[in-house]
Write a protein that binds this DNA or RNA. Structure first.
Lengths: 339, 339
DNA sequence: CGGGTTCAGGAAAACGCTTTCCTGAGGCTA
DNA sequence: TAGCCTCAGGAAAGCGTTTTCCTGAACCCG
């Protein structure tokens, strides 16, 4: 690997001069020398060692992102937003997949800190796990104390800047749509209960139920993995336990897609026999049949805003940006038919 | 930010000893000192500076991945495979999105080289662009010359290890299914023609046509973006130009999903009036209605194999691992009805 | 009890770069 | 022409680790 010293030697200048030319310092250098150095760079195919640079100029440039799983469309959309603003600011982003494992999440914070990232954005849901939350808080605090910036998406328990999707309100919207449309027996297919996203959305749903004089009994809630297969599985369980359901709320669109497949398999017409409402409005939602009614969250924008928060240090005050949820009516839901 | 020296001072030992304890060298150290150092680490919340470590031990550990766009399910699946084996080997992976911009791809190779990555995996399609290919080859060569490893997915033009999806063969399979099923007027919605993936798949399709005494005239090929919206748009164009089509091949599933939406919009029954076959078999394929017939490529496995190739240096010989394509018949295609 | 082994621990060089500080040449003013 | 400035370029000190090499103490054996 060619080093700066090699380039300097070849160009017949000092490393100092070579460095100045290559990384564009403000210091003036003759065109003559500049040309010689540039030629040497080209001939040696020299690329500066980023780690050495980082060490020398104590200036952090990369940013870290911790998500549950980039290949999940929900995070893919958020990540796109994150990337957009990061590259617009000339920042490299390091993406870490925790695969919903709190321990791994902790490890990644450490790793990103070691990488000297300028900021860490936590894009995954929080966990109901006091010990973990405390550990995470500790690590994050140690990081911010040394000038690191932190922003989170939808985790109320952490200090620092936050983008807060209206999960509770979104759950309420879905519930109001269904209960308000005359549905009485509404099932829920939910992600893991340790996730705050799950419980927040569920809470909104319950509020809606209350408002319409209904309830969401535990037997009509099926918990499973927050993905397509989890949705399929949970729907099957729900249907077996309560065959008289007239509507189902899926706590995210991936699960809703799984639900759709189970319903289709069992020959249950959607929305005629059962209405279905999802959550997130990921791109697939409009392409399944029937097109999925869902609670829309502007995922890409959420990512973009989280990164913006992370990049410009807002002067110390910890900011929270609420992100509204809106109900999108498509073909998979309808008011209850009176029977 | 606490440094090793801080830890050493606090523990009352030399930096050398602290280093040995913290990064687990083979050298023996008394339990007494070990305890003191570990305590200091804990109290100071010390995390070693990864860049300094990298500089000191000339050992590369991270690997770089360049894809078109992680949020595209095709790449999301591949990336998942890449990640799996990378983390299994204890490697950090740096993901770079080129957004199908060759210039950016070149930049990223440079950046990854600067990051001293142990290997670079190019997961995106190649481009028909001699100047670019030459520049890329040059940069990659400079990288391998210094011990870097390179592996690519489906780019025949580059040296080094490669995972080769059977794009041509896949195109052939789709074509054979349709032409062999009696379809005569088959349209194609294709990605950008500068992508080798597009031309390879198209070539296979043409071979199938030839074999069945048919052709794929230029007017029945619509080029557009390699995503859902591109598919919708291309389908509209195709339908306008050749209303008598009985089948459409989409050169990837995203485009197929877009095609489905245009067809639905126009009230054209699939597969009764028009058969549709996609390519890739991404997860959505089975969840759209009608479920998408497609040419399956084992995306996750392709990613895993590309990373395996990149990580174990195969002793110099450049290896190529072919990946077969298989046709998956679902509800969106059927033989031509004789009219 | 002397000389040779072990072995725990430290001093210091090295990794590849940036940047401060210094030098010496040239140009300017008086 | 002396004295001062300006300015291009180089020397060298870091940046935070790891690791080689060295030191000196403790131990063993004959």
């Amino acid at each position: 690997m060619a080093t700066l010293a090699d380039v300097a030697r070849r160009a017949g200048v000092s490393p100092a001069t070579a460095s100045r030319i290559i990384s564009g310092s403000t210091k003036l250098v003759t065109d003559e020398l500049r040309a010689r150095v540039l030629r040497a760079v080209d001939e040696l195919q020299y690329v500066p060692n980023a780690h050495a640079q980082l060490l020398a100029r104590a200036q952090r440039t990369a940013v870290g992102v911790i998500v549950h799983d980039v290949s999940d469309p929900y995070f893919a959309e958020i990540t796109r937003g994150l990337q957009q603003v990061a590259t617009a600011h000339g920042r490299l982003v390091i993406i870490c997949n925790s695969y919903r494992d709190p321990a791994r999440e902790l490890e990644y914070v450490e790793l990103l800190r070691a990488q000297q990232v300028a900021a860490i954005v936590l894009a995954g849901s929080g966990y109901h796990d006091a010990a973990f939350t405390k550990a995470l808080k500790g690590k994050l605090a140690a990081y911010t104390r040394t000038g690191g910036r932190v922003s989170v998406i939808g985790r109320h328990e952490l200090p620092g800047d936050a983008v807060m999707p209206a999960n509770e309100e979104g759950g309420y919207l879905a519930g109001a749509e269904l209960f308000g449309g005359g549905h009485r027996k509404v099932g829920v297919i939910a992600g893991p209960r340790v996730l705050t996203t799950t419980t927040d959305r569920l809470a909104g749903l319950r509020r809606a139920a209350r408002e319409f004089g209904r309830t969401v009994p535990a037997r009509r809630i099926a918990y499973a993995g927050f993905d397509r297969d989890g949705g399929a599985e949970a729907t099957a369980a729900l249907l077996d336990a309560s065959p008289d359901l007239t509507a189902i709320v899926a706590l995210n669109d991936s699960m809703a897609v799984g639900a759709l497949s189970t319903l289709r398999e069992r020959g249950i017409a959607v929305p005629e026999r059962i209405s279905l409402i999802g959550f997130d409005d990921m791109p697939i939602a409009r392409d399944v049949t029937p097109a999925l009614s869902t609670v829309r969250l502007p995922l890409t924008e959420m990512g973009a805003r989280a990164m913006s928060l992370a990049l410009d240090n807002g002067g110390g005050a910890s900011r929270t940006e609420p992100v509204p949820a809106v109900l999108v009516r498509r073909a998979s839901s309808q008011p209850a038919v009176s029977r």
